[in-house]
Amino acid sequence: MSILVNKKTRLVVQGITGSEGTFHTKQMIEYGTNVVAGVTPGKGGSQYNGNDKDQFTRPIPVFNTVAEAVEKTKADTSVIFVPAAYAAEAIMEAADSGIKLVITITEGIPVSDMVKVYAYIQKRGVRMIGPNCPGIITPGECKIGIMPGFIHLPGRVGLISRSGTLTYEAVQQLTDRGIGQSTCVGIGGDPIIGTRFLDAVKLFNKDKNTDAIIMIGEIGGSAEEEAAEYIKQSVKKPVVGFIAGQTAPPGRRMGHAGAIISGGKGTAAEKMQAMKDAGIYVVESPALLGETMERVLKSRKASKGKRKRVAAKRKPSAARKKPSRRKKSRK
């Protein structure tokens, strides 16, 4: 029904007693996420009910170390709300304690820390989402992160994005049209991230309950091109894509640490071209994500039973015509 997280996920919140950690833990519990533990060094052994502002509906046991939380509660996934200066340590602690999936919400972690963290978790076979991301949600089952739960709808479209609020925008457009989501992953806006477009695309491609994918990239780096290459070769599910920053000037960091065109590389134009070449339905306006996906899904449904054709080189803005000649079925 989803990728990476579902109702069986057992979540530990690192930095649970901080104000951010408390606020979002309350929201996650109310969404139905299986929060089993919290970690704040020095506050272990207590039951945490939230603070005056944000009261939990049920108490969460707090531990001094992630290892103890894993041992006592069988937590398998961690979310990190620890401040930037200590976040690298927190990620490595989770990875060293048997956690298999770490979701790092924290923004502003120094790159030099992340270079080390990345090597550290790779060696231990741990997957990370983020940092500097909204998190991951499988609608109706499990919300890990800071996204507003109510805009989501359970369904069969997978969504991958480098951004926060732009992701919510896309989700809203889908939900408004009655198109539900299997899982939405905010992979984060930093130059070093644990899960890249390619990784997430592979997972969605394998997931039997995901029919189509939305990919929202932005300027900087070449992760979108990398994923597009894979999609061209190996993905039959339709993909709708957008790249933010078509009007961004070169050499300037556009908010996200990773959103910068440097040495003429990482422009929206070249990413969009790579995506178009891979048969992705690229929209020029972010306002068209929802309706394009709706059209793509409808045309798929209409041609169900017929031989599915790869969506190559079809412009999403062009009115959809029935293919004048059906592709040879390769029985």
């Binding site: 994005s161 480098r162 951004s163 926060g164 609020t165 732009l166 992701t167 925008e169 806006g189 929202i216 932005e218 300027i219 957008f242 933010a244 920053g245 078509q246 009007t247 961004a248 556009m254 908010g255 996200h256 959103a259 929206a268 020029e284 306006s285 972010p286 306002a287």
Partner: peptide, 21 residues
């Protein structure tokens, strides 16, 4: 705008609407 990604996307929308950010 709130959020860097949405801010860039909003700039793009302005251009598509005939203006420039």
């Amino acid at each position: 705008v709130n959020g860097a990604g949405l801010a860039m996307a909003t700039m793009d929308i302005i251009k598509l609407a005939g203006g420039m950010p």
